[in-house]
Amino acid sequence: MTRTKLAADDMLAVEGFSASFDLKGELRPVLKDVTFSLPSHSMSAIVGESGSGKSLTALSVLGLAPRRLVRTSGQIRYRDSVLTELSERELRTVRGARIAMVFQDARAALNPVFTVGHQLEATVRAHQKVSRKQAKSLAADALASVRIPDVSRRMEQYPHQFSGGMAQRVALAQTLLCDPELLLLDEPTTGLDVTIQADVMDLITTLGAERHMTTCLITHDLGLVGQYCDRVIVMKAGEVCEQTDAKTVFSTPTHPYTQLLLDASELKQRDTTERRIIA
């Protein structure tokens, strides 16, 4: 097992983490010796295609991976504690409050039968002993902090009245209520339009800086990495291929798969002039 020293400025370190799916007693490895660290106060990205294990890795950090995922070796360390050794009860004090996660489909994460304001207030009151009035004003502050216009009207609305981009902001607001220091974002803008994606990503970057959060973007889009992230971890088929600076990944990628991803992301443009001559 590879064991890296948790540097003083690392928020999270995944060390030789291997896990398998338990398929009726047979183990199929899905994460193989995954090792990386997330430096404090930076925005990292875990990049990979479907089946690369990027989401499973993130879920494992929070202890939210599917039950049939079996850890076979390695550990996940967060500050002074080893997350993989914590009990479910201990983990609950970390989850949400210290490490939070935002998912791709924000609207599915909200309860359709309660107003958005109600749900945010409930989150406040679950974590802090405050009066209803205080909870309401904290919830409103949170919505304002994610730049949702017309907060008082929005508080009274139901999730279906929010667009995908607005729902993602609500999800962000909900995680911010507990003031986490590590925020994992699993494809937070996949499915959003590009103009909205840019707004949401800008917001995430700003909030990360304002609140001194360490953020980790789980994505398939290298374009987002170049635009917003400092560090990048490239995963393929359950393994980490490359871990480097976001800048380096574009200038001098070392792993062939990283190169392949870069090449595939950059499509050649149709030569319309040539075609016109043919025509």
Partner: peptide, 22 residues
């Protein structure tokens, strides 16, 4: 639309050309 699409480079220059709202 064109400006908002992420470019395949590190910190590509972006203009401040943005649309308001949704």
């Amino acid at each position: 639309l064109i400006e908002a699409a992420p470019k395949m480079e590190y910190r590509a220059l972006r203009s401040a050309w943005r649309l308001d709202g949704e």
